[in-house]
C-alpha cells in the first residue's frame, strides 16, 4: 500500500469520524443530508459483498467493517435518535435520491467488467458513490451558512477521492496494477463534483472567514 492510498483512506475515515463526532457530542445533524448518507450506506453494502469471501488483509477487512458500521449508524441516528433527528433539515433536504439509484443500476448492468452478480454490484457502488454527494451539495447550497464540522466533513470526503486518484496514478507507474477505466471515470466525476466546494472552502480558509456558498 502506498502513502497516497493510506492518506486517502485516512481522510475518508476522518470524514466519517467528524460526522459521528458532530452527531454524538453535539447531538446535531444540522446541515447533513440524510439522502447522501443513505446512498453511502447502499454504496458500502453493495461494494463489500465480498467482505467475508475475498480476504485481502486485516486492514482491509477492518476498514470495510468501519465504513459499513458507521454509514448505517449515521443513517440510524438521523432517522431514529430522538434528539438528533430533530436537528435534521428535512424540508431543505429534498433531493430525490432514488432517481440516482436506478440509472446507476442500469449503467452497471450495461457497463461492467464482468457480468456476475458481485461484479455488477461492485460497479453499481462505484457509479452511485460518484454521485452520492449531490444531495449533500444541494443542501449546503440551500442552507448557505455552513458550520465548521459540516464543511470539514465535505472537504475530507472530497480530499479522499482526490488522493485515490493520485494513488491510481502512482500504482500505474510503480506496479503493473492498473485500475479499470470505469473506476477512473467514477473517481474523476466524484472529485470534480467537489471541486467547486473546494474553491470556496479554500477561499474562506485563506481569508479566515466563515464558509459560505454563493447563492
Amino acid at each position: 500500500m502506498n502513502i497516497f492510498r493510506l492518506a486517502g483512506d485516512m481522510t475518508h475515515l476522518f470524514s466519517v469520524l467528524v460526522l459521528l463526532l458532530k452527531i454524538h457530542t453535539i447531538k446535531s445533524c444540522a446541515g447533513i443530508s440524510l439522502k447522501t448518507q443513505e446512498l453511502y450506506a447502499i454504496v458500502f453494502a453493495t461494494r463489500y459483498l465480498d467482505i467475508f469471501t475475498n480476504h485481502i488483509s486485516p486492514y482491509n477487512t477492518i476498514m470495510k467493517l468501519i465504513f459499513l458500521g458507521s454509514s448505517f449508524s449515521i443513517v440510524w441516528y438521523m432517522r431514529y435518535h430522538k434528539i438528533v433527528r430533530r436537528s435534521y433539515d428535512k424540508d431543505q433536504d429534498t433531493f430525490r435520491h432514488y432517481i440516482l439509484i436506478l440509472p446507476c443500476l442500469i449503467l452497471a448492468l450495461l457497463i461492467n467488467e464482468k457480468f456476475t452478480f458481485k461484479e455488477v454490484m461492485w460497479t453499481f457502488s462505484l457509479y452511485l458513490e460518484a454521485v452520492a454527494i449531490l444531495p449533500q451539495l444541494v443542501l449546503l447550497q440551500r442552507t448557505r451558512n455552513i458550520d465548521n464540522l459540516t464543511g470539514q466533513y465535505v472537504f475530507l470526503l472530497g480530499a479522499y477521492r482526490a488522493l485515490y486518484i493520485v494513488n491510481w496514478i502512482y500504482r500505474y507507474f510503480t506496479e503493473d496494477h492498473f485500475v479499470h477505466w470505469i473506476t477512473w471515470v467514477c473517481g474523476l466525476v466524484q472529485t470534480l463534483l467537489c471541486a467547486d466546494f473546494f474553491y470556496y472552502y479554500f477561499q474562506s480558509w485563506k481569508n479566515n472567514m466563515k464558509l459560505q456558498l454563493p447563492a
Binding site: D50, I56, Y164, H177, F178, T183
Partner: peptide
C-alpha cells in the same frame, strides 16, 4: 499484473 480490478481498495 492485472488488467482489471483487484478489489484490494476500499
Amino acid at each position: 499484473p492485472t488488467g482489471g480490478n483487484l478489489h484490494d481498495e476500499l
